[in-house]
Amino acid sequence: MENVRRPPRGTRKRDVPLTEAGIYAAALRLIDADGVEALTMRKLATALDANPMSLYHHVPNKEAVLRGVTRMVGAQFRTVTLEDAPWQERIRLLATDFRTLAHRHPELMAYSFSHQPDFIQPNDSFWTALTAIVAAAGAPRSEVSKIAAVMVSVVIGVLTAELNGSLHQWANLTPPGPDTEEDRAADADPASTDAAHEGPDQDHMFRLVMDTLITGLESRLTSVRDGRGAGL
């Protein structure tokens, strides 16, 4: 029988050629499973059954891979368009859909929020929808981007705290000052103690964030219309 020599592992030809899209998809699977820090070019090549050096024909380094994966996930963002709904309802829905995307890929999104200041681009569907809603709410054109930037910063801050566990920890801190009768009654109730141990309802807390943002913007826009506000 003829002795056939097999090529070394990692150097044999793949049945399917490498592509940037395929590399990003494989990287996202690894990130979802083990986190961004665990991703290496060698692990990515192994997942693709490819020679590690062949990856560099498509992406120069890990940072480029992460940016590509982030763009790919960002392109997945979808939201329902409610043109006739009040701007308050539209902005709640937009933020909720963005939160859903963040929780779909928590490891990647937490990294992107912290390490990629250009995570949101001017032509992203999220940004274009948000600025359109702020404009429809009656914000002066010169302030639309500023207001949208503040809202994005708050939402991303809350989502980051959700994803890394900070929100759970902070919500369970005991506020300073003497206990009230209501506090003492709650402490005596085993059900309330169990609820505190389980942590806050993050859906409820996110709604609280949106209520606060919307109320603030309503107040801001009223001040502008009444001539009591000039500039952000």
Rank of each mutant, 00 (worst) to 15 (best):
A85Q: 00
M72W: 05
R99T: 08
A85L: 05
L66Y: 07
R90V: 03
M109Y: 10
S125F: 06
L108P: 00
M72D: 02
E107M: 15
E107P: 11
V65Q: 03
L55H: 01
I120S: 12
P106T: 08
E89N: 14
S54M: 02
N51F: 04
S112E: 04
I120V: 14
R67K: 13
I120A: 12
D97E: 15
P117I: 05
N61A: 14
H105P: 14
E89M: 15
D97W: 03
L55E: 02
P122K: 10
L101V: 12
A45C: 10
F113R: 11
L130K: 07
H58V: 00
L93T: 08
H58Y: 14
P117Q: 08
S112Q: 02
T40C: 04
L108D: 13
H105C: 10
V59F: 00
S54K: 07
M53W: 06
T46A: 13
L66M: 04
R67W: 05
W87I: 03
T40I: 05
T40N: 03
D84C: 06
I91D: 00
A38I: 10
F126D: 08
P52A: 14
H105A: 11
D97C: 05
G35Q: 00
Q88C: 13
I91N: 09
T100Q: 09
E63P: 07
A102C: 15
G35T: 08
F98S: 09
L48T: 05
S125N: 14
Q88H: 05
L108R: 06
Q116G: 06
L66N: 10
T81Q: 01
F98C: 03
N123L: 12
A38W: 07
A50R: 09
P117Y: 04
F126Q: 00
L101I: 04
A110I: 05
S112C: 02
G35Y: 00
E63C: 15
R92M: 12
E107K: 13
R78Q: 14
R99L: 09
